[in-house]
Amino acid sequence: MSNGIRVAALDDIPQGEGLAVDRAITGTTDDIALLRDTDDAVYALDDTCTHEDASLADGWVEDGFVECPLHASRFCLKSGEVQGLPATRNTCPHRVEVRDGEVWLFPGETP
């Protein structure tokens, strides 16, 4: 198990919004969206919507879901499962931890 990558301060991600972390930093095939729910919990999903080429980090985050800004597909923040069409494929979740106000990402590790 890795120690993770420090990718942001919690204050860098407003409640209900997201922040994309470049794949050059994460070593993944897609950028990763850090998503801060309205209850302050932070989640990480592959950034590109599985329906169209849109950034989930630019979507709306609320009540455990992120809604794609392009066609309103919804994904569960915890599992990456599709919760609303037009997307039909799940996205990939990644483990994330908040320690002392810092956000640590564990790319490729299941939450």
Results as ranks from 00 to 15, higher is better:
G80Q: 02
A87I: 08
P107D: 05
R89V: 02
L70P: 05
G16F: 12
G59E: 07
V21Y: 12
T26L: 06
V98D: 01
D100G: 12
D40S: 12
N3R: 14
L105I: 11
I5L: 15
E102C: 04
A54C: 15
R23C: 04
V82C: 02
C92Y: 11
H71N: 13
A33Y: 09
R36E: 11
A87D: 02
A20K: 15
G59K: 04
F106R: 10
Q15N: 10
H51P: 05
V98A: 01
R95C: 09
G64C: 00
A41W: 01
D37P: 10
G18C: 04
V103K: 02
G80R: 03
A54L: 12
R23I: 05
D11Q: 12
D46K: 05
W60N: 08
S55T: 11
R6M: 13
D12P: 00
D31W: 00
T88N: 03
D30Q: 15
Y43N: 01
K78A: 06
R99H: 14
G4L: 03
P111I: 13
R23A: 02
A72C: 06
N3C: 11
A72S: 13
A8M: 10
D58P: 09
E67Q: 11
S2C: 08
C49Y: 04
L35C: 01
V96F: 01
V103R: 02
T88W: 05
T29F: 04
G4Y: 09
G18R: 07
C68A: 02
T110H: 13
G64S: 04
P107Y: 06
A57I: 07
V103L: 01
S55I: 10
S2E: 14
A9S: 08
D47F: 15
L105R: 09
R6P: 00
P14N: 06
P14C: 01
A9R: 04
R23G: 00
I25Q: 11
G80K: 03
N3H: 15
R99P: 05
G80H: 03
P86Q: 00
D37Q: 12
L56G: 05
L105Y: 08
T26Q: 09
T28I: 06
C68K: 07
D39W: 06
R23W: 10
H51C: 06
V66M: 00
L70M: 14
G16C: 12
I32C: 00
N3T: 14
S2H: 10
C49R: 09
A44F: 04
E109T: 12
M1R: 07
L85P: 02
C92V: 15
L10D: 10
L77D: 00
E102R: 09
S55Y: 12
E109F: 04
A8G: 10
E97T: 07
H94F: 02
L105D: 03
Q15K: 09
L45R: 06
T29D: 14
C92T: 15
A41M: 00
A44R: 06
P107E: 07
V66F: 03
V42Y: 01
G27D: 12
V61A: 00
C68N: 06
P69V: 02
V98P: 05
D11K: 15
H94K: 12
I13A: 02
E67N: 04
G108A: 03
Y43I: 02
E97D: 08
I25T: 13
T26N: 08
A54H: 11
A72W: 14
V66Q: 01
G27M: 09
C76D: 13
